[in-house]
Design a protein around this nucleic acid. Structure first.
Lengths: 201, 201
DNA sequence: CGCGTTATCTTGACGATGTAAAGATGCTGC
DNA sequence: GCAGCATCTTTACATCGTCAAGATAACGCG
């Protein structure tokens, strides 16, 4: 009943159509009309479900966070060592950005001019953040990290990983380095530095 | 002779107009026509200087890197200690992002779908990166960092700082934390962790 | 000095886009 | 079974990126 109507679940169909366009044609091809076309409805049909283009983008961004969350949790194979899980999570984060650069970008930059808030987006965002917080807590519980402010650790970790992913998909990692080492090797070094700063002496 | 023509230096006038629009109205207001209007020329005049909208954005992005470079070097007050200069540079980086979020964003994400290359953009990008490399070299020369691959250090540092700036302007730093501590204090902690990982034991 | 060439800019046009208004369609609850 | 409402289509409009054709003015070559 949430989204059922004449032709099925259009709201989610539009979101999925948008994600496909991001993946196959890039962000410049993402328009309300192209999304409607792909979903097989008229160009004004989306307005029954989204106030405007920004609201659709917010929904796509929320879905980006949801997908990211799924990939991050899936990457954490049953391992007792929280540091291992942190590594796995970080690589999954990078991989999502490399696999779906436009979806990743829009997830973090699409909903900016909004004084409006999009509760679904905020919720998914916080769920991802909570995942990092949990990892930090696990590390602290094992005495791997100091007992300083958990949130600060989480923000620091997220920043480092996020920044690398952003630079990588923006093609801003220096070409001389990338031709010499794989992105994953560079990232491995980055993670090593990050953990060296975090771990309790 | 480079850009002089009927009404003055239109090419740069258009770039500056674009930057002002980014600053005052945001990225959604940046159009070739709005830029032309602000520069006081007809809507097709930009095509004498830019092949298309993406070329204008590339020029705005290059100018973003140029401004960033200026702010980063200006922030490095005459201090012998390269760690101090690194701190100053990092804060200037964050400040630029906070002051001009849309210009900052477009600098790093605007020229993405380009298989074309924009030499001016690449040059300015590399100049900024070289600045970080120089800082790392100075730290290594003083024995503060190990003599491992300088480029890897530089990428790691840039990633950490860049990621924090991105999350900050995307409003993705957790609200509970931001209401408790200033962004600058959170950043200070982040930098402390970063340097703890980098410094030679 | 004069004239043609070329870079710069204007005007007008076209298709695409975001969005609003008005109408059609079909579900849903009373 | 009917009224109301959510959903969807059609039509319309301003704005956008881009192109083509023309005007204008600087510049080079004779």
């Amino acid at each position: 009943m949430n989204d059922q109507y004449h032709h099925g679940d259009l709201k989610n169909a539009l979101i999925q159509a948008g994600i496909e366009i991001l993946s196959k044609e890039g962000v410049q091809a993402l328009s309300l009309r192209s999304v409607a076309r792909r979903a097989g409805v008229s160009h004004a049909a989306p307005y029954a479900h989204f106030a405007d283009k920004e609201a659709l983008i917010a929904a796509i961004a929320a879905e980006g966070y949801r997908k990211l969350y799924a990939k991050l949790t899936a990457a954490q194979q049953a391992s007792g060592d929280p540091l291992v899980r942190l590594h796995q999570t970080a690589f999954a984060y990078l991989q999502f950005a490399l696999d779906e650069p436009d979806h990743f970008r829009i997830t973090f930059a699409g909903v900016v001019e909004a004084e409006r808030d999009y509760p679904e987006y905020v919720e998914q965002s916080q769920r991802c953040y909570a995942l990092v917080v949990e990892l930090v807590k696990a590390c602290q519980a094992r005495g791997l990290f100091t007992d300083e402010d958990t949130q600060l650790f989480a923000v620091s970790i997220w920043s480092s990983i996020h920044g690398f992913a952003q630079l990588a998909i923006a093609n801003q990692l220096p070409g001389a380095l990338v031709s010499r080492k794989s992105i994953h090797d560079i990232f491995r070094f980055h993670l090593r530095q990050l953990l060296a700063g975090l771990e309790k002496p």
